[in-house]
Design a binder for these strands. Sequence first.
DNA 1: CACCACAGTATCTTTAAGGATACTATACCA
DNA 2: TGGTATAGTATCCTTAAAGATACTGTGGTG
Lengths: 115, 115
Amino acid sequence: MEDKTCHGVETAVHALVGKWKPIILYQLMETGTMRFNELKRSIPNITQKMLTTQLRELEYHKIVHREVYPQVPPKVEYSLTEYGKKIIPILQSMQEWGTAHQQYMRENDIQTIEK
Amino acid sequence: MEDKTCHGVETAVHALVGKWKPIILYQLMETGTMRFNELKRSIPNITQKMLTTQLRELEYHKIVHREVYPQVPPKVEYSLTEYGKKIIPILQSMQEWGTAHQQYMRENDIQTIEK
DNA sequence: CACCACAGTATCTTTAAGGATACTATACCA
DNA sequence: TGGTATAGTATCCTTAAAGATACTGTGGTG
């Protein structure tokens, strides 16, 4: 963190990176407050473990708020914090570019998924 | 394209993710055309292998242009393509948010690097 | 009574990403 | 004659991320 070469982009990458975080955030951005399983259902293929760990990290970074209702069966709601809402522009430009990129890749017969 | 589940964000993440890609792109955005070693020197700790593979992937995605000059010693220049320049808004909002986030984390005594 | 939904943990295993190191060719420089 | 710079490959090895699976407690429903 000392040197000038550690760009903000690095920090942003660090906080947002991972296969799931941007998708989780995008969901919360679109839908607002969501319960754990609601979130899980909205993201195909994500496992409980992945969802939990990613949410915990986002919570740690104060990007996501976790509200526990002491009930049985449990009820836990997730939402973007006011602070977390500041990443909406990033998500939106990613969404915009990503959608265009899908089309561009298709037009040029380039695989979006390499390997 | 009406596939609601495969968000553009996913594609964006896929094309931009990795420890190095956003940094490489940010360099090229700031400096313009750069030679291989110039890029390498500007990114501390990156290995040749990492730089090469990341550049190849970006080239594959038509985000980065690679210009080889048939000389000895070799000269290869990298730059953003016109298409690649479309991600500048993403990089800028990431840079902006990331810088603010560093400060926010510092103020709240939260480690940017977990674990 | 058996079973479901809820929101998770706890382990274990797999896979992908990243890193270290050594090596290449060739021209120029001292 | 040896050393430097260039832009890479080719291997091998180490982590970190992701995934699979099983398990928890409890209250309400059929």
